[in-house]
Amino acid sequence: MSAYAWMWVAIVAAGVLSWATKHAGHSVPESWLENPRVHRIAAFVTVALLSALVAVQTFASGRSLVVDARVAALAVAAVLLWRRAPFIVVVVAAAGVAAGLRALGWG
């Protein structure tokens, strides 16, 4: 097979694996979830993964940790959330702070 055809095989394989992973989560038997311990862990898992995602999206650049415009933007977002600002205000303000600082040549 040509390299081009192999690339298509890889793309379809990646798609099937991605979907199967997602589908497996939705197929965990109901009886497992009735176990209080599994139920509690499942509730904490989303908080844990999404918090880790925020941290990585804020500080990671490849495999190094950096302090740049994103950190300032997230700090502003956190203050706005604490002040109970609406979702869209938080998101637009974060984008504005990051874009503004970069336009000024920082981060």
Partner: peptide, 11 residues
């Protein structure tokens, strides 16, 4: 600033 917007949205 869309990278910061995505992180702020998750936060």
């Amino acid at each position: 600033g869309l990278d910061a917007a995505a992180a702020a949205a998750f936060l």
